[in-house]
Amino acid sequence: MDFLRPASWEEALAAKAAHPTAVPIAGGTDVMVEINFDHRRPDHLLDLGRVAELGEWEVGEESVRLGASVPYSRIMEHLRAELPGLALASHTVASPQIRNRGGVGGNLGTASPAGDAHPALLAAGAEVEAVSVRGTRLIPIDDFYTGVKRNALAPDELIRAVHVQKADGPQQYSKVGTRNAMVIAVCAFGLALHPETRTVRTGIGSAAPTPIRARIAEEFLNSALEEGGFWDNGKIVTPSVAKQFADLCAAACNPIDDVRGTASYRRHAVGVMARRTLTWTWESYRGARHTTEGAA
């Protein structure tokens, strides 16, 4: 095994081009488990730890360009206002020690259906900045997950950053597990209200071979909210609409039975989380509306 230590982003890209099978290592919280247990013996480890810009972020007009290695603990601390869904999801990851090392680039690299960043990214709207010596492309998050623990990266590509849409409304993240800390999601649900476009987006974790959006449920809810004038009148979402939305979210799942839960439990739990996160975010949207109106 070789340990490659590029000192800059350009060197990292050159190393990945020269050794396409090299395994990048950022926080190491996935890679080192595999190495410690002999599940993986790469010829090259490509340490990204010295590439400083991967640990930085820039807040733009529309989106946050989040460096691939920014640890979860920094997202929780510094980006709660801009990326509330991702900050909440980050807080559910493992433990402080893991959150101090692991980040979204590694979560995307592993592309586990249980990764906590994914539902939040799907709900917020995001693009993955994939770079190689050949150039840069922005992969829409909806196209990034291609199979169980598979993603759309080419062998010579590295993730430079994720461009996550800044929140224009309330966002929530909900996760089912046996305790608060150190839990891989039995299933998880992210929801973001986008008042500017009058749309709702979802993200579901651990309930299909890849992280997914519940598109039919989103379309149903978008038109129900539009038809009822809910975005303007700020009324409570009709219980029948919330129920239908929850049922459609559950129906979007394609879960399996495993040690963490059965398929039918997962479907049920996704429905419950969909209804709850809709209620939470909608309440906070109504609250914000009242505050703005009151102030005007």
Binding site: M32, V33, D47
Partner: peptide, 28 residues
């Protein structure tokens, strides 16, 4: 050796981490 127990916790540049999940070369 999989980040679950925290008994290997050290501070790396001041930050608490599981030393079982840091590759030695990353501590350079």
């Amino acid at each position: 050796e999989q980040g679950e127990c925290g008994s290997c916790t050290v501070r790396l540049d001041g930050v608490p981490v599981c030393s079982c999940l840091v590759a030695a070369g990353q501590a350079e």
